[in-house]
Design a protein around this nucleic acid. Structure first.
Lengths: 203, 203, 203, 203
DNA sequence: GATGAATGAGTCTTCATTCAT
DNA sequence: TATGAATGAAGACTCATTCAT
């Protein structure tokens, strides 16, 4: 009899896969490495996810579902756009803190050699970006489309810059750090974007 | 007969390698693919660069040399810190525009499965970040170290967010776009960082 | 509720197995493919037939039983040897028409990698050939054993040449075709074998 | 320095592949088994033939080239059609004796699970059959197309019935056997086909 | 300097089968 | 009787690298 805390093989593969992919990069990790770590048979990756790329798709799906839900939730709040952005940053940072591996993999893996997965990610990503831009537009007057194409991604990138550099800089990422990070990014972005409406340019 | 414009086999490998790595990711590209494209023999990669990872190291070296030179140059200018930042963004963008493949590869490839290259990149990257932070400190009062660890990378990330998303969003990246991008990022960042010194918070 | 026309799972596996084996070859078909097509659980192949090779043995048994019965029946008829041969060809063709998949599989699969099945088929096959040769010997004087070893198989092969080529030539195989085929083969063979007793050689 | 009798790795793979495929069937043989027997590295199969199916295609090409050359040569002879047929049988049997493995593989392997190879064989096969039928038509009056579709293949099948049964019957196949076989088949076929022109039917 | 045949380790995936339910 | 999750072995193939020429 399996105990209550027992995690299913399917889930173990996803979690361990995300962890290894986050550490070493998708294509540098073998399925055998993942399943060994998960304590299941090699063939279970194909059995459950239809293969290594299917596992990556499952990870991406998980991430974009989680972040999409947050964006939608924040969108629906009855608060100012600025507050929404702060709230969005905070909630996304919390989610990232709780799902570091899945997030890092979803953000950084660009499997251009697997078109199917590549297009899949592209689609999910664009949906996310669009929803975020909709929040910005509630208050800020971002007419120029080319700016939109810069500001939206820039925001997204700021958010995840932590992921980007924690890999390289090996910073400690406790909950206090995440909070500080969220605040700083919100300040930086809100002040930055506010400046667009000012006449006088800095420098 | 080799003309004046003839590029050496060694250089052809690097350029074609950077192009393919940028398109498909380092580990998704085989040396054979690179050398075929470059029109040289397979074994020349090992011959010139000591192997595939050696080629990546050479690309990284090239990029960090180029960006380091720009940072140093701008650092030495006798202008305000704000203007230095604008100049830095402008110059780096120009460099990226001229060396898209090498830049993208250098920024996005995280070869954690090859510790030697991974550490190599980490070292070069940290040197760059440090030099940039020194410019910020000239004027802005960024006391809190954890903020430093956020703002520096955030700036770096903003700069390269273009790379990140051009892969996914397939934007046109002509020289006009680059200029607009540089301006927007400079505005965003300078306004954002200026806000840190303001008492009143937005939102 | 199972109706009268319902076919048992066991039989469904055999029929669908024969069909797929006939189309794609024994080793190119997986048990999962067979059971999916049959609408039963994967493990039923092992359950009913003791495994994939057991299923093949069952198909072979079915075929050699059917053809053996025909040969015995024709042998016992009180007609001339020539007529027996015509009748044999006709009856076998009818049986093949009604059991195309089982016949094709039984004739063409040579599972040398599964000695048990290979020997099983060899034994059944030799019994068939022997019974056919006995019919020939009733009238024709085929003394030379090496000729026996040629003529018997040649007859058998002529009979099944239709199977052999229908795979490649994609002929229509309606009942009219089968009748024409049976007649032609009978003519060819009876004329051919009759010639053995003639002195003068053709050509 | 390699001796004069040394066979190239490429050729060793083909010969040993043909031998193993002939014995155990194409899909029952692993590439590793072939290359081990050939004394070369596993990857050479892909290197030279582009994979296991490429090796099969090479074997087929070899066979159909050899048999096609013979058919063309005999076609061009200035002798009666009957003599051409006898000569054809004799020459093909000689070729088969000298290339037993390649012939058996080419005749019996029907790789329907590899459409590319399947179609490749189909095309080569049809070309062969067509050339043979042209010889028949020189003298014999085979008007009915459906008979053509039977007689041509039947001849082909008679020829190769030896292959078919030597697998099962384990006959000795020395040069004396081959000669006897060629004679018997020629007699059988020429008498059989001659009978088509006779009014009276046997039986 | 440059070639390309050859290597061997490693990859993902598929398969028939089993066992607890 | 029937299920389907799980197994372990084996499959073909790719890759970076080397070495004799």
């Amino acid at each position: 009899m399996k105990g209550r805390l027992e995690v299913s093989p399917r889930e173990r593969i996803l979690q361990n896969g995300a962890e290894l992919f986050a550490q070493k990069g998708f294509s540098a990790v073998g399925v055998r490495e993942v399943t060994d770590k998960a304590g299941v048979n090699v063939s279970m990756t194909s059995y459950y996810y239809g293969g290594k790329s299917g596992l990556l798709k499952a990870i991406l799906t998980d991430f974009f579902k989680k972040s999409g839900d947050i964006i939608k939730e924040v969108s629906g709040l009855n608060i100012s756009a600025d507050k929404k952005i702060r709230e969005l940053v905070k909630k996304l940072m919390e989610m990232m803190m709780a799902n570091q591996n899945i997030c890092r993999v979803s953000i950084f893996e660009m499997p251009f050699d697997i078109p199917e997965v590549s297009e899949f990610k592209e689609q999910l990503f664009k949906e996310n970006i669009k929803m975020i831009l909709d929040i910005f537009k509630e208050k800020y007057n971002i007419r120029d489309e080319s700016v939109q194409l810069i500001v939206g991604p820039a925001f997204y990138n700021l958010l995840f810059s932590h992921c980007f550099f924690s890999n390289i800089l090996h910073q400690d990422t406790d909950s206090k750090y995440y909070k500080k990070f969220a605040d700083t990014i919100s300040d930086l972005f809100l002040n930055g974007i506010a400046g667009f409406n000012n006449k006088k340019k800095i420098a």
